[in-house]
């Protein structure tokens, strides 16, 4: 096995103002939506795809010479964008009448997540509640669950220690499970 020579480095900020998170978010949202659909369409199901999608979005959006503050910034926004893509799609699917709905590739992506959480929309509601309570935990959930990052990468993205992420992740999972039971 090769020793990785580097992890994802921060993208260059050649003198430019960092793009606002909103701009980056909007762009990533589109990109992820497209990619999630495209990948699922010809690759079948695979649980690694969340990371693949985020990775490719990274190459694409970073390749457009956008300037943004840091890798952490990017990953955070990407994870949030991923969450929105999936939740929006789940919501759209729910509002459609049964039978009138033709299956689209993004459905497959959704199913991957659905296997790990009973209801994505409910999870989204609960994350909104947790946001008020403990926003740092929501960031961890977004990075771990939606962007599929490892503990190490989540720690890198949040500029904190793996131990902190580990503890936060356990707490967030436990809280969400309890909250789901009460919901």
């Amino acid at each position: 096995m090769p020793t990785p020579t580097a992890t994802l480095p921060p993208p260059p900020v050649p003198g430019g103002e960092p793009t606002t998170a909103d701009q980056l978010y909007a762009e990533l949202y589109d990109e992820l939506r497209r990619r999630a659909g495209g990948l699922m369409a010809h690759q079948g199901n695979h649980t690694l795809q969340a990371t693949a999608i985020v990775h490719e979005a990274w190459l694409k959006v970073a390749g457009r010479q956008h300037t943004y503050a840091s890798r952490a910034h990017f990953l955070g926004v990407a994870a949030r964008a991923m969450r929105s893509v999936l939740v929006d799609h789940a919501r759209a699917r729910r509002t459609l009448k049964r039978g009138a709905h033709a299956r689209v590739p993004l459905d497959d992506a959704l199913d991957l997540y659905a296997a790990r959480v009973p209801d994505l929309l409910e999870l989204d509601d609960l994350l909104a509640r947790l946001e008020a309570l403990d926003p740092a935990l929501v960031r961890i959930v977004e990075l771990r669950f939606f962007a599929g990052l490892t503990i190490e990468d989540t720690a890198l993205a949040l500029a904190t220690s793996t131990a902190t992420v580990e503890r936060g992740w356990r707490a967030a999972r436990a809280w969400l499970r309890v909250a789901l039971e009460d919901h």
């Binding site: 090769p2 690759q43 690694l48 490719e56």
Partner: peptide, 30 residues
């Protein structure tokens, strides 16, 4: 093993193989 052919995981692995990756792979044209 990989979700998209040739698309490495986000976690460091990418740099180990980047040297041998073709343009179509780095552009994600799977």
């Amino acid at each position: 093993a990989a979700g998209a052919p040739g698309s490495p995981t986000l976690a460091g692995e990418v740099v180990g193989t980047l040297e041998s990756m073709s343009p179509e792979q780095v552009e994600g044209r799977s």
